[in-house]
Structure formats: structure tokens, C-alpha cells
Amino acid sequence: MGSYRWNWPILLADPYYGWIVSGFGNTCLIAVLAWSIAFPLGSAIGIARTTELRPLRLVGTIYVEVFRNIPLLAQMFLWYFVVPELLPQDWGHWVKRDMPYPQFLTSVLCLGLYTASRVAEQVRSGLEAIPRGQHHAGLAMGLTPAQVYRYVRLPVAYRIIIPSLTSDFLGVFKNSSLALTIGVLELTSQARQIEEYTFAAFEAFATATLLYCAVTGIVILAMRQVERRTRIPGTIAIGAQ
């Protein structure tokens, strides 16, 4: 490291500062949009996998197995390069030539669908962690199966899986860096671009790291409050009290 010349001010210099800001904005936007696909879809699939209906369970299982077993990097690529080729020609042409923000929208969709498979697994394991007796008790009280989910099982399940859901949300945020592979200028790609221009590798990557850490740190702290407030009485205490 002896010959490394530090040059922090370069990050505030003209084009580079703007790149970091816009990269950071894109990263946050991708993460939030992808999560707004992943959370409802993942919840629905997770619930489907715990129902009594075989076809629903099958669909849920296939979805989860396909989406979580292919590396995100490869999925990104498949959505961007392979899927348009498989569409009817007019649609494919529209996706390739006329769809606005093609790289951005593709990466949001891809990340959302991928993360949904993980959310589904969390929701399912949360639901399965609840003793069956609660389900039966709900039915015995005259609730419909839908009501049992809505008022008995889901509220408990979500509270159990808050820590792992937090992980998944942070996962979306950090995985958004893979959007650079199809040409979205998010935080990591802007850091790379600054490195290519200036060779100031440490400064560029340290800034990206700090920004990621800052956001995830805030999310973790916020979720810990949520976790504490929603703790289920009677279960083993969480963390230091």
C-alpha cells in the first residue's frame, strides 16, 4: 500500500460527486420498488404453500424452487436478454426498443421476483413454527380458514420472522448492486466508474461501503424497535433487554 496516493477530495469534484448521489438514489429506488413486489408476492406464495389446497401448494413450491435455485446474476441476464427473445415478436420488439427505462425496470422486476421466493420461505417457516393447535382452535371458534390466517396465524408468523425479513430487505438493498450487470448506474457501478476514471479505488469503494452501511444500519436499528414492540409474550426473550 506504500505507493497509494490518497485523494479524498476527488469525490467532491465535479462529475464524481453527482455520480455518487445519483447512484445512491438509484440503489434506494430499486430496493424499495423491488421490495414492494417481493413482500406481497412472497407472502402470497408463502401462504399458498401452507394451505390444504394441493394445486396452490404445487404452484408455490415450483415458484420458490425455480427462483431461489438460479443465481440472481444469471436471472438478471435471463430476464434482460433471453425473455424478450421468447415473447411474440411485437412484444419482444416493444420490450427491446420502446419500453421506457428498460434496464431499470428489468432489474426491479428481476430482483422483486427473486426476493419473493425468499420472503415466501420465511413466511412459510413462520407459519409452520406455530403449533397446529392454534389453527384448530381458530376453526373450532367458528373462524373461516381465511380468518384463521388473517387473525391468528399470520400476525404470529410475521412477528416470528421479523429478524429474517429484515435480512431479506437488506438483501434486496445490497443485491441491487447486481443491476449493474445489465447497465443500471447504481451505487456500485458509479464507484466502479469513478475507479476507472481516476484509479482512486479505495476512496470510491470506501464511500460506497459507508453509504451501504449507513442505510442498513438505520434499517436494522428501526427494525429492532419493531421487533421489541411486537414480541410475542411468553416466547424466549430476544437479545439484551
Binding site: M1, G2, R192
Partner: peptide
Amino acid sequence: TPQTRIPLLTAG
């Protein structure tokens, strides 16, 4: 890689 070349060069 573009990420490692400068750190590795300056680290020797």
C-alpha cells in the same frame, strides 16, 4: 479485476 488492480499494485 477493475476492483482489485490498483489495491494489489499499490500493496505490492
